[in-house]
Design a protein around this nucleic acid. Structure first.
Lengths: 241, 241
DNA sequence: TCGTGATAGTGTATAAGCTACACTATCATA
DNA sequence: TATGATAGTGTAGCTTATACACTATCACGA
């Protein structure tokens, strides 16, 4: 509890304190594929290794505010989807000192990447989650693996997939993302039916011309998102704590 | 990231550090009803208020180890289900100083409560979640509400309910718990079928005599639990991050 | 000893939802 | 005007869920 089981001996300042950082796993979609932002470290420890962006919390900001600050520093993006993932705190995860890291997941829209790209430095890159660097700094492999698993899992039963798409998109583009994430082909007809029945999409007048038949574009109804969660598929190996 | 976006200026010890505590929301079943363990504070701040048990982490133990230590100190119980809930870190959640609290959920078996009771001090009590104290210390109302919501949610699509039951139980007792949690009556026949099909229960030779027809008792197959998650019911308002 | 209430457990017709896949539609281009 | 490419619809049949009627086995009292 807050220090009071042994109240008579209470003196918080006695206790040695760990450092607390916030790490943000930033996902986006590039050419229909899921990517994550990593930064390359220039100094010991793990010099040259890729790492999840993050940093120390300020004493006067909330954890989420710290995560948003980090996110904006790295990508220049604001108002994105952000959720707390997990807190990693093994005693020796950082060789320098005890560091507790509160990890967050951020989803950045596909059409917002250019902002990131424009501010990209040589040691900041989007990596496809299917082809990540061999080894990451610290326990970041574990954090990233967990983030990917959680994202995959949640995309199946929430509207998170929409956060990755641009403002307007076709139903088959949406299907493509689901296929990427689920790792399997989906039936076109069934997908259309399911998405339409969900009533989460709003038809627009925009028609995109392409090689075949012109494609109608749709928009995500944010208002509906909170009312009704969209359950795309049930899986037995869900990760969602 | 771990401190290296600005590597040239890196010096972790410069940063002011928050205190980090682990709070454990301990649930159990008493007379078929969900209860939670709270401790009453003896000192400022929130003197006399009920709080979730917890304490500072040691510098050489993991977060989960700290949670298990707290749990054992409070209930004497080991080897229970434990999962990280969420990390609460608003700047002014503790009036004394900046405290980051990593909250855990623990599920204690119904037949293990006596252990807790035997070590109970005057200011430690099991509270039914349906009738909690008006106000809790710090932001513990929020933590507790979140824990209860997450527990309810997860009980529907995991085998967590079994963690609350004694070693041996009847299928209708299990049904009773699900009814408690879901807040609705379930069909007996469908419940039998669903549970049996799930293959999560192991029949025992134990028969309990009662008023009516004798009841066969069952045991939870822990080995199966990891293979196959038991999805009892889908809900649209799930909370599972 | 037979009936009744209480609890335990099974069977099944119907409804609802999902899946697979065949079908139609509309464009560009050769 | 035929062909390929992409967009979108219809539907038969299978699978699963729901509601509810049914059987089973005990204690206990008339």
């Amino acid at each position: 509890m807050e220090p009071a089981t042994n109240p008579q001996s209470y003196d918080p300042s006695r206790y040695e304190r760990p450092s607390v950082t916030v790490d943000v796993v930033i996902f986006t979609l590039i050419s229909q594929e899921l990517h994550v932002l990593l930064v390359q470290r220039r100094h010991w420890p793990f010099e040259g290794f890729w790492a999840i962006p993050g940093g120390f919390i300020n004493m006067d900001e909330s954890l989420e505010a710290a995560a948003r600050r980090e996110l904006e520093e790295e990508t220049g993006v604001r108002d994105v989807y952000l959720e707390q993932l997990y807190t990693f705190g093994d005693p020796d995860r950082d060789p320098r000192m005890r560091v507790i890291s509160v990890a967050y997941i951020a989803l950045v829209r596909a059409d917002a990447q250019k902002i990131a790209a424009s501010e990209e430095s040589t040691d900041v890159r989007w990596w496809p989650v299917r082809a990540l660097p061999e080894q990451l700094a610290f326990d970041h492999e574990q954090i990233l693996a967990y983030a990917v698993a959680r994202l995959r899992s949640k995309l199946e039963y929430t509207t998170l997939a929409f956060q990755l798409l641009p403002e307007l998109f076709s139903i088959l583009e949406l299907k493509h993302i689901y296929e990427q994430i689920l790792g399997e082909k989906l039936d076109k007809g069934n997908f259309y039916r399911k998405i339409k029945e969900s009533n989460l999409l709003e038809e627009t007048d925009v028609i995109r011309e392409g090689r075949g038949r012109p494609t109608r574009l749709w928009r995500f109804r944010r208002d509906r998102a909170s009312d009704k969660q969209f359950v795309f598929r049930w899986r037995e190996d869900r990760i969602d704590r």
